[in-house]
Simulated scan of single mutants.
Amino acid sequence: MAASRLPSFVRQHLAALRVLTVLTVLTGIAYPLAITGIAQLPGLRDKANGSLVTNTAGQVVGSSKLGQLFTDSDGNPIAKYFQPRPSAAGAGYDPTSTSASNLGPESMVDTLDDPATKDTDESKQSLLTQVCARSKAVGDLEGVNGRRPYCTAGGVGAVLSVFRTAGTTGTITRVVSINEQCPTTPFVATYQGVKVECATFGADYTAGILVPIKGPGKGTDNPVPPDAVTASASGLDPDISPTYAYLQVNRVAKARGLDPTTLHHLVKEHINGRALGFMGEPTVNVLDLNLALDKAAS
């Protein structure tokens, strides 16, 4: 007598279980082990393990592929170290929150802080004000002129909201410095004969025409390069331009009591050329440069 066959639904579930087991072994065990083994081959091991960088004591201090902050406990730049470019990833160079600001060239109006909430700062800077503030901060840190076009001396976007009798035409009736919150004194007293007001939280200025004011700052007078005031798309860029590195030489040399010429040569030695000789721009890896600086100083 032939053995009775299992019901079809049981056979289907057993077949599915066998397929699941085989695929689990292949894709969940064999494939990851194979890829891990290949990644540990000479030439691939460093990148696969995170391109970790160690100091002279053998301690892991970071990754050559990820930027990091060189600040004190209060968030201030440490004078004896070269500083990276700004980062929009979390509180700065947070690999779990990699991102860009997603702000474009038309971002000129700041969100003002509500004076009623004194314990929290709810303000939000436009891209223009971010660039202005960063440029001023870098200029103050490095002892150079950080004033940029369309920026106030205080480091915010120099933008006026101009009200006219007929919308975009007619006589000017009111002018507001849209990024300078009261009781701040506006960066200009008058505009075409009309007194300029400071901005008030909650007021509606959308009926006015936005007018950026170029001011005295000139791009040719400002030695602060673009990468010192703009964040990368990932927020994790470990490199800066040679121009920004050279700008920091005098400050770092003074903080360490070293000859600026020595640091100038150190920066030059750490310039990475264009990829394949023609792609991109020369860069300097900030972590590598600071480790070399520590080594040279010791």
Rank of each mutant, 00 (worst) to 15 (best):
Val267His: 01
Gly104Ile: 11
Gln12Pro: 00
Cys198Glu: 13
Leu141Glu: 13
Val229Leu: 00
Asp227Ile: 02
Arg256Ala: 11
Leu141Ala: 11
Tyr244Val: 05
Asp237Lys: 01
Ser4Tyr: 10
Pro186Met: 08
Gln130Ala: 07
Leu276Lys: 05
Gln181Arg: 03
Ile240Trp: 07
Arg256Glu: 15
Leu293Val: 07
Thr27His: 03
Thr185Asp: 12
Pro42Met: 04
Lys214Gly: 13
Tyr93Val: 09
Val211Ile: 10
Val224Cys: 01
Leu33Trp: 13
Tyr81Pro: 01
Asn49Asp: 14
Ile172Cys: 07
Leu247His: 06
His13Phe: 15
Ala207His: 01
Leu66Gln: 07
Tyr81Lys: 04
Asn290Val: 02
Val159Lys: 00
Ser73Cys: 01
Thr261Ala: 15
Ala15Asp: 09
Gly215Leu: 08
Thr54Trp: 07
Thr27Ile: 14
Leu210Ser: 10
Phe82Tyr: 13
Cys182Phe: 08
Tyr150Pro: 00
Ala48Leu: 06
Gly50Val: 06
Tyr205Trp: 02
Thr21Asn: 03
Thr36Ser: 09
Lys295Gly: 02
Asn222Asp: 09
Leu258Gln: 04
Ser73Ala: 13
Gln68Ile: 04
Tyr31Gly: 05
Gln181Leu: 12
Ser126Arg: 05
Arg256Ile: 06
Ser241Arg: 08
Thr173Asn: 01
Pro216Glu: 15
Ser177Asn: 05
Ala16Leu: 15
Asp237Asn: 11
Ile78Asn: 00
Ile240Asn: 03
Val249Lys: 00
Thr98Arg: 11
Val159Arg: 00
Ala255Lys: 02
Pro115Trp: 15
Glu106His: 09
Arg5Asn: 07
Thr200Phe: 01
Ala116Gly: 02
Arg164Glu: 08
Ser126Pro: 09
Ala275Pro: 00
Thr206Leu: 11
Gly90Asn: 07
Ser298Gln: 13
Gln181Pro: 04
Asn272Arg: 12
Pro186Val: 09
Thr120Ile: 15
Val188His: 04
Ser135Trp: 01
Gly75Met: 04
Pro223Lys: 03
Asp294Cys: 05
Glu281Phe: 06
Gly62Phe: 06
Ser241Gln: 12
Pro7Ala: 15
Pro242Tyr: 10
Ser107Ala: 12
Ser123Ala: 11
Asp288Trp: 01
Thr173Trp: 00
Leu69Glu: 13
Ser135Arg: 01
Ser241Ile: 11
Ala158Trp: 00
